[in-house]
């Protein structure tokens, strides 16, 4: 039996795929996006969030796939009634692909579908561990700019593109999602570049994730600086005009 490094398990997740879902957040990430809203999931080490309300939450727990299975199966009736299931997010859940593949297979055996929310910057063989067990992939595409990937978020755009292309051609359901980060990918020219990339990769549908800074309390609780603390959120009209660009090429929706 394999083990997973679990940060938290969140029930009735309504923003993470179809139906009523439980999202299992896995701890550890290979990217370093400065706008990240789940900073507690970046390090793979256990961490304690100490909120200014006095509340303390420790996250980071090694759980066997069976333990996680038992926990998420408590909500199986909700999944069945609503067409929901289990979502794996993070951090980068694909870093734990082997155990994840095992858990997804166990879920399948119980008639529960799974969804993996990935930034896709891992070796393709990791995907091979999960691809036959997983129903939906949420795939983040953060920029069309090689430099942003390499110098800001510590990633490699070629790996991301290559994985996305292979995933799409494998016939799996892949939803490409773009976090709208001010100064990174929201300028008209940047949006157009991303669109060109995605068209090239065979993408049909795009989800836009409006920027938010809800994670700032977690940065405080961890005692780390948050570069986006003072970056204001986008207005509804800004989001709408970005959507219009994507709408020219894709079925576009705002999450």
């Amino acid at each position: 039996m394999k083990e997973l490094n679990v940060s938290s398990i969140q029930r009735f997740s309504t923003g993470d795929g179809p139906g009523i879902r439980t999202t299992v957040f896995l701890k550890g990430c290979n990217l370093r996006c400065p706008w990240c809203h789940n900073p507690e999931n970046i390090s793979s080490q256990p961490q304690t969030l100490a909120y200014n309300t006095g509340k303390k939450v420790t996250c980071g727990k090694i759980m066997s796939t069976e333990e996680v299975l038992a926990d998420v199966l408590e909500d199986v009736e909700y999944y069945r009634a609503s067409g929901g299931g289990v979502t794996f997010s993070g951090g980068e859940p694909m870093l734990q692909a082997e155990a994840l593949g095992e858990l997804c297979r166990m879920l399948n055996d119980n008639g529960v579908t799974s969804l993996i929310d990935t930034a896709g910057c891992v070796p393709w063989r990791y995907f091979e561990s999960v691809i036959d067990q997983t129903d939906i992939f949420y795939f983040d595409y953060k920029s069309a700019d090689r430099n942003i990937y390499s110098s800001i978020i510590n990633g490699d755009i070629d790996i991301v593109r290559c994985n996305l292309k292979r995933l799409i051609s494998s016939g799996r359901t892949v939803h490409v999602r773009i976090p709208l980060i001010p100064g990174i990918n929201t300028a008209v020219s940047e949006c157009e570049r991303i669109c060109t990339d995605l068209l090239d990769l065979g993408v049909k549908r795009v989800g836009l994730l409006p920027y938010h800074r809800l994670g700032s309390a977690k940065y405080d609780a961890l005692g780390i600086e948050y570069a986006y603390r003072n970056v204001p959120i986008q207005s509804a009209s800004e989001i709408e005009s970005i959507k219009e660009i994507y709408n020219k090429y894709f079925i576009t929706y705002i999450e």
């Binding site: 969140q10 009735f12 997740s13 309504t14 923003g15 993470d16 999202t23 809203h37 789940n38 909120y51 309300t53 509340k55 997010s89 929310d117 999602r177 994730l209 938010h212 809800l214 994670g215 700032s216 309390a217 977690k218 405080d220 609780a221 999450e255």
Partner: peptide
């Protein structure tokens, strides 16, 4: 709740 994220409202700044 937003995609990939949730928080207790009163813990937010």
């Amino acid at each position: 709740r937003v995609s990939g994220f949730s928080a207790i409202f009163v813990t937010l700044g």
